[in-house]
């Protein structure tokens, strides 16, 4: 699948094309589920929230502009925002209960995502430009879903320092990614 096909799912949804919703779930269901797992620790809450996210993506498909962001960014953004909002509505229970995940064909979807989205490679490069502390803070806040207060306790550093460092690292990440993106477009333009 190439980049054009990748953008086509939201385009197909916006046009109400039969089968597009199944395509959305097949391609991005695992991603949405995985993002949700770090915010919600109760299977029932997670399942409800995932349903909300998939509806929200369906409803927002016509707002997607491929010139502004990659499809995966758009979907991940809706998912994260919805999960965070959902988390506010419920009491967060961190339990040791295992989730009923499916393990079939996960690699297939992972690889198709990786091959399609150049933005994923650009942001990875931008993350690698952060220093080790910056990458660790990013891992805890963005990937692991810990709050700033929890990170302060985990790393034994003042909350104010955590806020400042995360803010600076996110700004640096944002700037580096934007620069990488421009350079990538220039190269693409030069190559015709």
């Amino acid at each position: 699948m190439n980049s054009n096909n990748n953008d086509a799912i939201l385009d197909l949804i916006a046009k109400g094309r039969p089968g597009s919703f199944e395509m959305l779930i097949e391609k991005y269901g695992n991603l949405v589920w995985s993002i949700g797992k770090k915010f919600l620790y109760n299977q029932s809450d997670l399942e409800d929230a995932v349903q909300e996210v998939m509806i929200a993506i369906w409803k927002s498909a016509d707002k997607f502009d491929p010139n502004k962001a990659a499809e995966i960014t758009f979907i991940s953004m809706i998912a994260r925002r919805r999960f965070i909002d959902y988390l506010r509505k419920i009491t967060k229970h961190k339990s040791e209960d295992s989730m009923d995940d499916e393990n079939n064909n996960i690699n297939l979807y992972k690889e198709s995502l990786l091959n399609e989205e150049t933005d994923l490679a650009l942001v990875k490069s931008a993350i690698e430009e952060l220093d080790a502390d910056g990458q660790e803070l990013l891992r805890l806040s963005v990937y692991e879903g810990y709050s700033h207060s929890e990170i302060s306790e985990i790393l034994h550093i003042p909350l104010g320092t955590v806020k400042t460092r995360i803010r600076r690292n996110l700004m640096k990440l944002k700037d580096t990614f934007a620069t990488n993106k421009i350079q990538s477009k220039v190269i693409q333009f030069k190559n015709g």
Partner: peptide
């Protein structure tokens, strides 16, 4: 940027991705 960084982690590290 946080959404893209988040998605990047799942795409680049197969251990992080779970199946719905």
């Amino acid at each position: 940027i946080t959404a893209l960084a988040d998605a990047s982690m799942y795409a680049h590290d197969e251990q992080n991705l779970s199946g719905m």
